[in-house]
């Protein structure tokens, strides 16, 4: 591996990214590092490509006849291409207070992780000449940038994402409802949140989006401590978003807590699967290339599902 590529990949590690304060710089490093790591051009697969030959049928556009094949076989064959479609993306990022949590071993808050990933996706999307927009929410939809692929969109998105602090309680269902009202075209909606809200409300909001035929990707962010509850001894838990206090011995609650987390994740996973939405759990200690890979894989899968073979 070349040294330069090695240097880029290190920026996918949250430990390193946490030291970089500027979101724009951070995202560029993420994206460049990601693509240098997979040895592929970011343009690959994104242009119109030859797919197959088929026998000419009546009604086909003669412009698609492959005359070279005709010269060899004396038969009319039509060149078939994959359809080149637009997949506009709306990034929905949770900015509630709970997203500002970070345990001591973690180097990034959930919000920092979410904005980094969102900005990286926006960058990638713009690189594909697709339109991308961003929506921020806490207990309501607080900021909204309509999808676009113009030159200034990247700057606008980064500006919106960078430095947005959480407000109060999370109300994901309500925010998604507001978002659904404001979106008119089909979009790939990427929801990045800790989803610390009632699962039924969240699923209800997702259903509204799905009802409007939007594609959904739900990324559920967790701090490492939230997945293990690693505390010992008597502790007073002071809930963010004014969720109250609890004095207890976390060691004795750990198993029940993990069961509750697992139950929530299962409920979300089942709900999303039911509405053909993609649900993924991310630990903020997870390197960002995993998230980006997951995004691209999901996106390509969506494209393949949506697209049908068409003749050009």
């Amino acid at each position: 591996m070349e040294p330069s590529k090695q240097d880029y990949r290190k920026y996918l590690d949250p430990k390193v990214l946490a030291k970089i304060s500027g979101l724009e710089l951070r995202v560029r490093l993420i994206v460049e590092g990601f693509f240098s790591g997979i040895h592929h051009s970011p343009r690959r697969g994104l242009s119109a490509e030859f797919a197959d030959h088929r026998v000419y049928a009546q009604g086909d556009d003669i412009r698609h006849i492959d005359w070279k094949v005709f010269g060899k076989t004396d038969k009319y064959y039509i060149k078939e291409y994959e359809q080149e479609t637009n997949l506009n993306v709306m990034l929905v990022v949770d900015c509630s207070e709970s997203m500002s949590y970070r345990s001591d071993p973690a180097l990034m808050t959930k919000h920092e992780y979410a904005t980094s990933v969102a900005a990286a996706i926006a960058y990638l999307t713009l690189q594909q000449a697709d339109a991308v927009g961003v929506a921020l929410f806490d207990d309501h939809l607080s900021h909204f940038v309509r999808p676009s692929n113009n030159q200034q969109q990247w700057k606008t998105i980064v500006h919106e994402l960078d430095g947005r602090t959480g407000a109060a309680k999370t109300s994901i269902g309500r925010a998604l409802g507001e978002l659904a009202e404001r979106l008119s075209h089909r979009l790939l909606i990427v929801l990045i949140s800790d989803l610390f809200d009632d699962a039924e409300d969240i699923l209800r909001g997702l259903k509204q989006l799905r009802y409007r035929r939007h594609e959904l990707i739900v990324w559920n962010l967790w701090d490492p401590a939230e997945l293990t509850l690693p505390f010992n001894g008597p502790a007073l838990f002071e809930g963010l978003e004014a969720t109250g206090r609890l004095a207890s011995d976390p060691g004795s609650l750990r198993s029940r807590y993990l069961e509750e987390v697992e139950r929530f994740q299962s409920q979300m996973r089942a709900g999303c699967a039911h509405m053909l939405a993609d649900y993924s759990v991310f630990n903020t200690a997870t390197p960002l290339d995993v998230a980006l890979s997951g995004y691209l894989a999901t996106r390509n899968a969506r494209l393949r599902q949506r697209s049908s073979r068409v003749l050009r």
């Binding site: 949590y101 610390f196 939230e226 008597p234 838990f237 809930g239 609650l253 987390v261």
Partner: peptide, 21 residues
């Protein structure tokens, strides 16, 4: 009396676990 104060985001899960336990 000598507990630690821990700010905590996933309070709903903790509360639920406590209610059950």
């Amino acid at each position: 009396r000598r507990f630690r104060r821990i700010p905590w985001a996933a309070m709903s899960f903790l509360m639920a676990a406590n209610r059950r336990s």
